[in-house]
Simulated assay, not measured.
Amino acid sequence: MENNKITEIATEKLKERFRMLKVLTYTLAGVLLVSVIFNLFVFKKAPSLMIVPLALLPIVIINMNNISQIRKELAKRLNEQD
């Protein structure tokens, strides 16, 4: 997500996107964490199953970056209103 696209989005839509992205990202991170723990303790002889959580980890990292950018933009807009 580019900064100029974030600045063009209405505040209400940005808040909605922020909430949705936050819930989905934290849910995905939780599922990946449970998957890693499950794979470590249950499938000790099948380390190839660790590929899936590790492959999906960049999605979580990218989404966390997007959450941070949206949070900054919302804070900037709140400061401009005051």
Rank of each mutant, 00 (worst) to 15 (best):
V42I: 12
P53C: 12
S68Q: 14
V60F: 10
R77L: 08
L74D: 14
L54K: 02
R77M: 01
L40H: 00
K44H: 03
N63E: 04
L78I: 09
F43G: 00
V42C: 07
L40Q: 09
P58L: 14
A46Q: 14
S48H: 04
I70R: 03
I70C: 08
F41P: 01
L56M: 15
L56R: 11
N63T: 12
K76S: 06
I70H: 03
K76D: 03
F43V: 06
V60S: 10
L57K: 00
M50G: 03
L40V: 07
A55C: 06
I59C: 07
L40W: 04
I67V: 02
Q69Y: 04
P58V: 07
L56G: 08
L40T: 08
A55T: 05
M50A: 04
L56A: 14
I62V: 13
K72S: 00
L40R: 01
N66M: 05
Q69V: 08
K45R: 13
V60M: 03
I51F: 13
R77V: 10
I51N: 01
K45V: 14
I62T: 02
L57I: 00
P53W: 13
I59H: 04
K72I: 01
I70K: 07
I51D: 07
L74H: 10
F43Q: 00
I51R: 02
K76F: 08
N66P: 02
N65Q: 09
E73L: 06
N63H: 13
V60G: 06
K45A: 15
R77Y: 09
S48K: 00
N63I: 04
I67R: 00
I67D: 10
L78S: 12
M64H: 09
L56D: 13
L40K: 01
L49N: 08
L54P: 05
V60I: 14
K72P: 01
L57R: 06
L56K: 08
I51T: 12
L78G: 07
F43P: 03
N65R: 13
V52R: 10
N65T: 05
I67M: 03
L74G: 12
F43W: 07
L54C: 11
S68A: 11
I51E: 07
P47N: 12
L57Q: 08
A46Y: 10
P47A: 12
S48V: 05
E73F: 01
I59L: 12
M64A: 11
F41G: 05
N66G: 05
K72M: 04
S48I: 02
P58Q: 11
P53E: 15
F43M: 09
V42E: 06
Q69A: 13
I70G: 06
I61K: 05
L54I: 09
R71T: 02
